[in-house]
Design a protein around this nucleic acid. Structure first.
Lengths: 146, 146
DNA sequence: TACGAAAATAAGACTTATTCTCATTTACGC
DNA sequence: GCGTAAATGAGAATAAGTCTTATTTTCGTA
């Protein structure tokens, strides 16, 4: 059935990144794969248990770390004291975030001009960038009306 | 002597912002005022003690919170698990940061075009911004040579 | 200048996200 | 199928930051 080949694909993805294909990592990837939410570690732990995958908290953290290192997952810091995680879809799926302080909603955006300016700033300072965070905090359309 | 009038000025600053001018807050402002470093709470605690101001940790956190709320101080999150603080110099001293992952050096920059793009993105999404973080991580000029 | 209410502080207990330890289990090349 | 290196589980440990409560301080008013 379907599930088998999905698992096979995830196994291959993991192995292609020099990670052992443990059932825990497969479950974790599958979870992040199937959502646009930005889960934190505790939510991931809870969601996996809901799906009968009793992965330990330590493994959640360790696996996420490994996946982030392999750039299969991105670690996000929205400034509220815990990290969030999102699946990297393709090669060039980079985006930034608008974060609503009222309802927690996260809007993803990409702005080429902004990226270009970042590169320009780095060049000015002879700085070699490896990553960046661009988060705009404020109030979303919906929450402004309330 | 000099120190008196500096203290008087800081007292006025605090009172102008509806904060009681306690010796702890004055010492804290004076510390941040006199440095371009981005101290974390523990460093501030340590520096104050070095200067014979035995402010408690709780007060360091509470005072910083009050100063941030009054926009006298900016709270920065460089993603390493603790918050940093910097004095706001004037009204329009906003800037972003290049952070060297090798030596920890922080380079401040301001890019008008980038700020303009941020506003444009917000308008596109009918999003009302209150603040943003733009941090570029990478390797500084010096560390690239090593 | 002294008084008193409200606010701020000190000290340390507490919380919460994350990391570490170590005994046990699992993946996977042979 | 075997052996070894890597991964996991369970819970202890850590660390940044918050909370509690008794005490002290600020500052408007007398």
């Amino acid at each position: 059935m379907m599930a088998v080949s999905v698992n096979q694909a995830l196994k291959k993805t993991l192995r292609d990144h020099e990670l052992k294909a443990t059932s825990q990592r497969i479950a974790l990837l599958k979870l992040l794969n199937g959502t646009s939410e930005h889960f934190d570690a505790e939510e991931i732990y809870f969601e996996l248990h809901k799906r009968q995958k009793n992965v330990s908290r330590a493994t959640v953290y360790r696996s996420l770390e490994a996946l982030v290192e392999q750039q299969l997952v991105t670690k996000l810091d929205f400034g509220d004291g815990r990290m969030r995680y999102e699946r990297n879809q393709g090669e060039d799926e980079h985006h930034d975030h608008l974060i609503c302080e009222a309802c927690g909603k996260v809007i993803e955006f990409f702005n080429l001009e902004m990226e270009a300016q970042q590169i320009a700033v780095c060049e000015e300072h002879d700085f070699k960038p490896s990553s960046h965070t661009m988060h705009i905090f404020g109030t979303c359309s919906n929450c402004q009306k309330k």
